[in-house]
């Protein structure tokens, strides 16, 4: 009985995904005949090759990968550094800076797109990787997450390392970071996911296929192939596969990253 409810729910959740996959495996008129449209046998696999040739999805995904990795690395690094400062260091105006970091959480990026666009243009970074990555190289959310993890490092470890002659740098990379690894991994996965899924900013600043990321690439694919919807759907499937894999492999970290704000509050 409970299984019925679970299965029905699962079907509803999976329906859009299933339909997209099913339609991507058919062409033309056959995809319009219900109910056979839902059961593509035999499946037309050639479309997936065209997704990469005509649809250029390979390039788009490469761009997304480059940008997402760059953003992730940058965010992890800046969060570690800043998180360390907040967790272990005493310095003047510490609270002010803390609030300053907090304030960036209040300004959603959509509010500043016009001004940020002008800034990027000023640096001549339109249609470039730098332009895609730079605005997102730091994150207050990540900083607080890492700070939280650092605060959990026992005092004795800190004292011990100081006695052993380790300065801050040694302590940071030798002790604190390894201990905070789960949180840092969570941040990494989370940052990657957010960066991969970005839409508005890449839309604004990319103009050519050379730098388009996969989300905007999908939009290009969709408007460029109005008559070949199986190609568009195939592209959609392909574009989502990397993240599905990410979800499966890093499920734990992902969950942790998402819930870090929720449960403790």
């Amino acid at each position: 009985m409970q299984y019925t409810a679970l299965t029905v729910a699962a079907i509803v959740v999976l329906l859009p995904i299933y339909v997209t996959v099913a339609f991507s495996l058919q062409t033309g008129a056959s995809a319009l005949d219900f109910p056979s449209s839902l059961f593509p046998f035999p499946p037309e696999l050639s479309v997936f090759r065209r997704v990469f040739s005509v649809g250029n999805l390979g390039r788009y995904m490469l761009n997304s990968a480059i940008v997402a990795v760059a953003i992730t690395v940058a965010q992890v690094l800046t969060s570690i550094l800043a998180g360390y400062a907040f967790a272990f260091l005493r310095f003047p105006a510490r609270n002010v800076v803390f609030v300053g970091f907090l304030a960036t959480l209040m300004v959603p990026s959509e509010v500043t797109i016009v001004a940020n666009y002008d800034t990027i243009v000023g640096f001549d970074w339109l249609d470039s990787y730098q332009g895609l990555v730079a605005p997102f190289m730091a994150t207050a959310f990540g900083t607080f997450l890492v700070r939280q993890a650092f605060l959990a490092v026992p005092q004795d470890l800190r004292d011990a390392s100081r006695l052993d002659g380790y300065g801050h740098w040694g302590f940071m990379w030798g002790v604190a970071v390894p201990l905070a690894r789960p949180a840092i991994a969570a941040l990494g996965v989370f940052s990657f996911l957010l960066a991969w899924n970005q839409y508005l900013w890449p839309l604004l600043i990319t103009n050519t296929d050379d730098r388009r990321t996969v989300q905007i690439g999908l939009k290009t694919l969709a408007s460029n192939n109005v008559n070949e919807f199986n190609l568009v759907f195939a592209g959609t499937v392909v574009a989502s596969i990397p993240i599905f894999i990410l979800l499966l492999v890093f499920q734990k970290q992902l969950v942790r990253g998402l819930t870090s704000g929720a449960v403790k509050g």
Partner: peptide
């Protein structure tokens, strides 16, 4: 398995979700 299925949409971006719904 059900838990994984229910979490699966976290992997969909806005573009992917929108295009999937066009299929519907």
């Amino acid at each position: 398995i059900y838990r994984t299925i229910f979490s699966s949409t976290v992997a969909t971006s806005v573009a992917v979700a929108s295009l999937m719904f066009i299929a519907l």
